[in-house]
Design a protein around this nucleic acid. Structure first.
Lengths: 166, 166
DNA sequence: AAAGATTGAGTATTCAATCTTC
DNA sequence: GAAGATTGAATACTCAATCTTT
């Protein structure tokens, strides 16, 4: 058997299947729990929270829409729609980038920051309950290594594919 | 400091934040990759694939809608809608449970099984690329332990809450 | 009356145009 | 004309009724 070849390319073995199902289940549960908590206590979706949180950490609390789309992991049209909603609530403002009018800068307003800070403790608490209270410190480190390794593999694969398809 | 108290209840420390962001990112990337692969090569969403896969493993390739909803981690209304779509394609059939007419039994048809089997290799391949080719065997085991531990904690919490609220 | 499932209205998301600025 | 963003139509999802069987 050549080194590095997958054991069976067409189906998962018992251990892989178990791992995958557990992962799927956990991802779904955590996502549902966070969405429910935010919706109930703050009237926000997890996606909206993520957008506002990304803005809050950026310099001037501002990001270009396309950068925000990457950081919040959503499509640009989706970002645009959600930004419209958040703008109506007064939590976000948009304006053309003075240095290049093709870009739109989205900024978190003072009211938006206040909203985010009010929502944060409940959100962090739920996240702790779901994830960090349960795991040992060692498991948290393992989880980080595992996820970062997958990230690295995928981003280098994407790099390769982009290059090959152009 | 009392034993077992969280270090800081209101915000994540640097290590937790890094772990959480990596997890979020990986969950989003894998979900996007699997959806894209299935959509492109088989015209199925990952959710539809999961439903059909759950049915394919059940005795008689049949499950009650409510059981299927749990296994596929979707709401009953969502299941109902998706089942309507899959039924139109001829991949699923529904009929009242003869033993108790309140239940609806959903079954995977022969055509549905054929569709699933045609889609499986591509799906498994993508899953391997995303997850299993990248991780060591030891990491796969760690991932399983981590996810199963979270599952157990959440299900016992749910049990407690149900009891207390009733 | 209660459990299971479906339906319908409202909302969110996606995908393909379209518009604007460079 | 190309990049960034927005809009509009089609699809999907959620949540609150509704319907059916027990």
């Amino acid at each position: 058997v050549p080194t590095g070849a997958p054991e069976s390319p067409h189906s998962l073995n018992a251990e892989e299947l178990r791992s995958w199902q557990a992962f799927l289940h956990v991802a779904a549960q955590i996502s549902a729990a966070l969405n429910a908590q935010l919706r109930r206590d703050a009237g926000l979706s997890h996606f909206e929270y993520g957008m506002m949180s990304a803005l809050s950490k950026a310099p001037e609390r501002s990001l270009r829409m396309s950068t925000l789309a990457e950081q919040a992991e959503g499509s640009l049209p989706r970002l645009s729609q959600v930004a419209t909603r958040l703008e109506r609530k007064g939590w976000v403002r948009r304006s053309p980038d003075p240095s290049d009018g093709r870009f739109t800068l989205a900024s978190l307003t003072d009211a938006g920051l206040a909203k985010l800070e009010a929502a944060a403790p409940g959100h962090v608490g739920e996240l702790r309950r779901q994830l960090f209270d349960t795991l040992t410190k060692s498991q948290v480190r393992q989880l980080t290594s595992i996820c970062e390794r997958i990230e690295r593999a995928n981003s280098s694969r994407r790099g390769r594919e982009d290059r090959d398809h152009r």
